[in-house]
Computed example of a mutant assay.
Amino acid sequence: MSKGTLDGAVVAVAGAAGPAGRATLLRLAEAGATVVAADADAARLAEAVDSARYAHGGATVTGDTVDLLDLAATRAWADKTEKEFGRIDGLVHLVGGWRGSSSFAETDLADWDFLEKLLIRTVQHTSLAFEAGLSRGDNGRYLLISAAGASKPTAGNAAYAAAKAAAEAWTLALGDAFRKAGGEDGPKTAASVLVIKALVHDAMRAERPNAKFAGFTDVTELAEAIAGVWDRTAAEVNGKRLWLTPQP
């Protein structure tokens, strides 16, 4: 992707303080976007924002501590972002988390309660909050990062896979709304699911130098793929699962 593809675009990143978030902030800033980052962890968010600003002098990267489990707070964040910058061209959903068990029988339903909030509720709130703003632009993107396990659940991952599958379905329903709004001309805004097996980053490799991490997607590769979705037309990517790992 050329450096200036996202020049002037305003992209919000939810769950921006983790390794994938940090890589995404850097890549979007490099591409010329104004990046509006949000996370529940204020200290880690400030570090991520400062890092992206430092790496790309002149880039506008801001941070907001937002409780994405609160719909009103999420709507306020979306409204504030559009009001402050005059537009909103993207919402990248990177809120993640994992809980699992050694077998299906040992599944703890408390894991479902945790994952439902983290992986589904935050998708519901961000999509409802940002749909109108994304629809007002001519190149809006709502991007969910999902996992291959949603399509091929394993016994010990029932809660995680089910939550991811629900988040995918919700995002694809948003894509159908964008399709209908586009009418005969086709959608001008897109909702897409980027599917990985799992993520890996430098700190993980340092902790486990002998691990292969086969099939894992590096956070920098994910960031590149996220930025690259804007290179493709809305019709190409709307309502689609974009596989960054072999499809099961």
Rank of each mutant, 00 (worst) to 15 (best):
V35K: 05
A73Q: 15
Q124R: 02
N210L: 07
A190R: 01
E84I: 03
A16V: 08
T24D: 02
A163H: 07
A161K: 14
G156M: 12
V237Q: 01
D185K: 15
S2L: 07
H56S: 13
D7A: 12
P248D: 07
F216G: 02
D79E: 15
G149D: 04
G149V: 13
R208M: 10
L115Q: 03
D64S: 14
L91E: 01
A198R: 00
A163T: 12
T34I: 14
A17D: 09
S146W: 04
E131P: 01
F213I: 03
A72H: 12
D89M: 08
E116S: 13
D67H: 09
A198Q: 00
A234H: 05
R232M: 14
A214D: 07
F130Q: 01
L222R: 05
I145R: 05
K117M: 02
G137M: 06
S103Y: 08
P248E: 08
P153A: 10
A167V: 12
A225S: 09
E236K: 14
A166S: 15
G97L: 01
A76F: 00
A72K: 13
A166P: 09
D111N: 10
W243S: 06
G140T: 09
T122Q: 09
L118Y: 02
L144D: 01
L222N: 04
A78T: 05
E47D: 15
A163N: 12
G183S: 10
A55T: 11
R241W: 00
F216T: 01
G156F: 11
A43W: 04
D39S: 15
S127Q: 14
P248H: 08
G156N: 14
A148S: 15
E236S: 15
L26K: 07
K117P: 01
L172K: 15
G228I: 02
T60P: 05
G175K: 04
L26F: 04
H93T: 03
G8R: 11
R136M: 08
T62S: 13
V193T: 01
G21Y: 04
G149L: 13
A33F: 00
E184F: 02
S146I: 10
D7W: 02
V35Q: 06
G86C: 06
R44M: 13
L143Y: 03
A163D: 11
M1I: 02
M1L: 03
G140E: 05
T81Y: 07
T122W: 05
A191T: 01
A181R: 11
V200E: 10
E82H: 11
L174E: 05
N238V: 05
E207N: 00
V95Q: 04
Y160G: 08
T34M: 12
S2P: 09
E106M: 13
S2E: 07
A158W: 06
P153Q: 06
A12W: 03
R121N: 08
F216S: 09
